[in-house]
Amino acid sequence: MEKIRRKEERAAASLPLPARRRIALPSPSAPTQGQGVSLADAFDPGAPPPFGLADIRAAIPKHCWVKDPWRSMSYVLRDVVVVLGLAAAAAPRQLARYCIQLHISYLFIVLSSQVLPMLPNIVNLPMDKFQTALSRILQGSPRNGPSLDPSEILIAIHLIDPDKEGIALKQVIDACAACFEQRTIFTQQVLAKALNQLVEQIPLPLLFMRTVMQAIGDFPALVDFVMEIMSRLVSKFGNILSYGYDS
């Protein structure tokens, strides 16, 4: 009983003075309707409240009723700028990744000039999707043939800059390993052709020596060829060093 009365007193104290005057709290010693009737039993939830809309408006601070369109529009503009900024930051890479996954089934009709810019995003896919995309590229279309030949794919994978493209180095290593697993496609001749072109790149691709060692392990007959390109590599860097020393 005492708790109910305190609660009603706190509710009445929070109202403006005009509304407070209209509220008459019964005395705890005097029952509302008769002996044994509590305040909770006497409360009628269907009765109108003891205050009106004017009392509610009077309780709200005056400055809250001041209209300021410029401030309101500034809040809207701020929210729009934040949303657009977040969308611009997230969209390019997520959109490219989504488009790659969505159009894997159409890669066999894409030209080589279109595949090469997409290759970093293809390499960044999960391994199962990368293998599907790789088979599509190598399959090509009956009319135009493969979009890229195996040596071009291997070279393009080695030329990916992980830091520039925002790709983990492990993704590139796994992509090379997936190529080596398909020995019927990435044959000894294909590897020799790819290594012959990679050795001419300046700077030398990051995974070049790893690929050389893996190629020898899978195709021991490439040892003589690897020794030849390594001698060319030493000669090339010797000429570069001597040119820098002379200048």
Rank of each mutant, 00 (worst) to 15 (best):
S74F: 07
I137P: 13
P126L: 05
D163R: 14
D68P: 05
G140Y: 11
G34N: 07
V81I: 15
P50R: 10
A54D: 13
N239E: 11
S27I: 00
N144S: 12
K7E: 04
S38P: 03
D41T: 09
G244F: 02
E165V: 01
V212G: 03
V76T: 10
A89N: 03
Q131F: 00
A54K: 11
L119A: 06
Q139Y: 09
A175K: 01
A90I: 04
A40L: 12
D79I: 09
L233C: 04
T211H: 05
Y75S: 11
R232N: 11
A58D: 10
P45S: 10
S242G: 00
A54Q: 12
A168H: 09
L53M: 11
L116R: 12
N196L: 03
L138A: 07
W65C: 13
R93S: 13
N239D: 11
Q214H: 09
I185A: 06
P16M: 08
L53H: 08
F51Q: 04
F186S: 04
A192M: 13
V66Q: 15
V37H: 08
F225R: 05
Q189H: 04
S135Y: 01
V226H: 02
L15K: 08
L191F: 04
P28D: 14
Q171N: 11
A19K: 09
L134D: 03
G85C: 13
V80R: 13
I104N: 08
R10V: 06
R22H: 05
G85Y: 11
G217C: 08
A90G: 10
I185T: 15
L125S: 14
L111G: 14
P203M: 02
D41V: 09
R21L: 04
L102E: 15
G166C: 09
S151N: 15
L125I: 05
I122G: 04
F186K: 07
A178I: 02
T211P: 00
V123L: 02
P26K: 02
R21E: 09
F186N: 05
A88W: 06
L204F: 00
G85V: 05
F180W: 05
V199G: 01
P220H: 08
I216F: 10
A13G: 07
I122L: 10
V234F: 03
A19Q: 06
R210I: 00
L233T: 01
L25F: 08
L148S: 08
